[in-house]
Write a protein that binds this DNA or RNA. Structure first.
Length: 565
RNA sequence: CGGGAAGUAGCACAACUUGGUAGUGCGCUACAUUUGGGAUGUAGAGGUUGCAGGUUCAAAUCCUGUCUUCCCGACCA
């Protein structure tokens, strides 16, 4: 493509309303433009990149034997009611009505439609297994869109669904997808981790997430320094060692005036906060439930809800707290008149400090035998330095953006939607499903987030909008113009994607723009063309080299070959 | 939804505290000089100051409401 008469612009200033590096660079490069919170248009350069990502995804999905389909975005609500997901997905669905007041939604996820599609074909075990997928828009009314393309309300997702006769078959389909995913993310040159994760609203038995490692990641990845344990913090298990027998001291009431936080109390009593227990007063189905965890830890709502078998846990209101004798800031388990859930780690603690349910007082030397509780379980977040549940090594954290996931859905949707088949013995069985998602836009944002410098993005060859750009220094110089255009034609005819910057701009502007949009290889055609010399510079390298026009095409071909994926 | 910040030219900002009829840089147009890392000069074009009310002789500025966007927290590809 030649730039002179094409749709192309860049911004010299940072975008005011894009704080994230990737959001800012994508907007500045003219690849995307914000339309509303979490809604973007993809402009020519951006679409080229997006399409390249989609192409790689498609290639690997097809290679894994999946077949592409396309589902609608506008879907009658009934389809989501069948699985009870109107409730579950709730406010995160965009819903609307047609002229006859019939309710519709903009599809936030497509398990139902894919299951129905499967019903068209599945009658017998002979029809299984198969996997179908699409790359299509999803709509989610996110409470807080943010970070450019990271969390948006309309986005392209690749979602695939596998259909098998049993768990063993699902394992095979699942692993095929996993392999395809590894190929996809390897080809895209993303720095990623695969972590075990919660199955969430999708339901099912196993879920793994592909997480792009970046500082603006919204998920905490728990990794082990000595084995390959990798887990999302939301399900990462806290392992506490049984301490050797400790002499239990006598319970003691101590005055802790105006000290409400654990740090204040621990400092005041000259104790490690690890030796304190704090209370979290929560609302569980409008009942006050008090969770006790080690003072320096955080409550993991995900684990806690699972332990209690509830869908939601919120902070308790003052009114609800008033139904018990709990005193905010001084709540302890001893003689507390409320439902008590304790972290199982507390079972291994001795002579600790906790609230006394009395304004201005804590107990010290508390032991488990001093109080009663209703439920015990693993309800807090792991911390860096904790023990690895697999090998006993040390855990450390990284932040990640979820760019893909794998779910073993099981029979949840098939059962609800009556997706069954007859087996060899004429018995009716329920189909076993898996679902597999990839956030295409998120991949773009993650790559930019991971690969940039002060001049802009540094895109890998696989997804750069163009593989090579030619910067024509002086477009009034006949020699330069002639050669640049000849080179452009020659490379284009070789099937190479070339961008020729033939605009009436000064060289500096052209260099800046080419850097900003991250074209991997730049050929500069300047004065030395009279000596048949041009310059070549790789976006991710500091220095350029001079190459003669005779060697140039081979040089480019070599470069592309070496960086092929 | 709770907490914080902000809406002024295509983009980034100033003027707001202390009301007096809107300015700077970039970008854009024309001309000249430039031409290897976001050129310089001269002359221009471009605004219902988010929107709606109110106070006032007078509102970008003060008040009320409303909408939008960003950042911090609960959701997810």
């Amino acid at each position: 493509m030649k730039l002179k008469h094409s749709y192309f612009y860049t911004l010299r200033n940072d975008a005011k309303d894009e704080e994230s590096i990737s959001g800012n660079l994508l907007v500045r490069s003219g690849m995307i433009k914000k339309v509303g919170a979490g809604i973007y248009m993809y402009l020519p350069m951006g679409l080229r990149v997006l399409d390249k990502i989609k192409k790689i995804v498609k290639e690997e999905m097809d290679k894994a034997g999946a077949e592409e389909v396309l589902m609608p975005s506008l879907i009658p609500s009934d389809y989501y009611e069948a699985c009870g997901r109107i409730e579950l997905l709730g406010k995160s669905m965009f819903s609307l009505y047609d002229r006859f007041d019939k309710p519709f939604v903009l599809g936030p996820t497509h398990e139902e439609l894919f299951t129905i599609a499967a019903k068209n074909v599945v009658k017998s075990y002979k029809d299984l297994p198969f996997t179908i997928y699409q790359q299509a828009p999803k709509f989610r009314d996110e409470p807080r869109p943010r970070y450019g393309l990271i969390r948006v309300r309309e986005f392209i997702m690749k979602d695939a669904y596998s259909f098998d006769r049993d768990e063993a078959g699902l394992d095979i389909s699942y692993n095929k997808m996993k392999k395809a995913y590894n190929n996809i993310f390897d080809r895209l040159k993303i720095d990623y981790k695969i972590v075990k994760a919660d199955t969430g609203v999708m339901g099912g038995s196993l879920s793994e997430e592909y997480q792009a490692v970046t500082d603006i990641g919204e998920d905490v990845l728990v990794l082990c320094d000595s084995c390959n344990y990798a887990s999302n913090i939301e399900i990462s298990e806290v392992v506490s060692r049984k301490s050797e027998a400790v002499e239990e001291k006598k319970l003691e009431l101590v005055s802790t005036p105006n000290m409400k936080t654990i740090e204040e109390v621990a400092n005041y009593l000259k104790e490690d906060s690890k030796n304190t227990v704090k209370a979290l007063l929560m609302n569980v189905n409008d009942e006050l439930v008090v969770f006790f965890i080690r003072g320096d830890r955080e409550l993991n709502l995900n684990k806690a809800s699972k332990l209690l078998g509830v869908s939601e846990i919120n902070f308790a209101s003052d009114e609800l707290i008033a139904t018990s004798n709990a005193v905010a800031g001084y709540t302890g388990p001893i003689d507390l008149k409320a439902k008590i859930v304790i972290d199982r780690e507390i079972l291994n603690m001795h002579n600790f400090i906790c609230g006394a349910n009395k304004e201005g007082y804590h107990y010290r030397n508390v032991n488990v035998s001093d109080f009663t509780y209703d439920v015990v379980g693993d309800i807090s977040n792991v911390q860096e330095g904790d023990i690895c549940p697999v090998c006993g090594g040390k855990l450390y954290f990284k932040k990640g953006i979820e760019i893909g996931n794998l779910f073993k859905l099981g029979t949840k949707y098939a059962e609800k939607l009556d997706l069954t088949y007859l087996d060899e013995n004429n018995n009716q069985n329920v189909v076993v499903m898996g679902s597999y998602g990839i956030g295409v836009g998120r991949i773009l944002a993650s790559i930019v987030e991971q690969n940039n410098d002060e001049n802009g993005m540094i895109l890998p060859l696989a997804i750069a909008p163009f593989q090579v750009c030619i910067v024509l220094i002086d477009n009034k110089d006949e020699n330069q113009v002639t050669y640049a255009n000849k080179l452009y034609d020659e490379l284009t005819n070789l099937g190479i994607e070339v961008l020729l910057d033939d605009r009436d701009e000064r060289p500096g502007v052209k260099f800046k723009d080419m850097d900003l949009i991250g074209i991997p290889l730049r050929i500069t055609v300047g004065k030395k063309i009279v000596d048949n010399i041009v310059e070549i510079k790789e976006r991710n390298k500091k220095d350029f080299i001079e190459v003669t026009t005779f060697d140039l095409v081979d040089y480019v071909k070599d470069y592309l070959k070496q960086n092929k994926n």
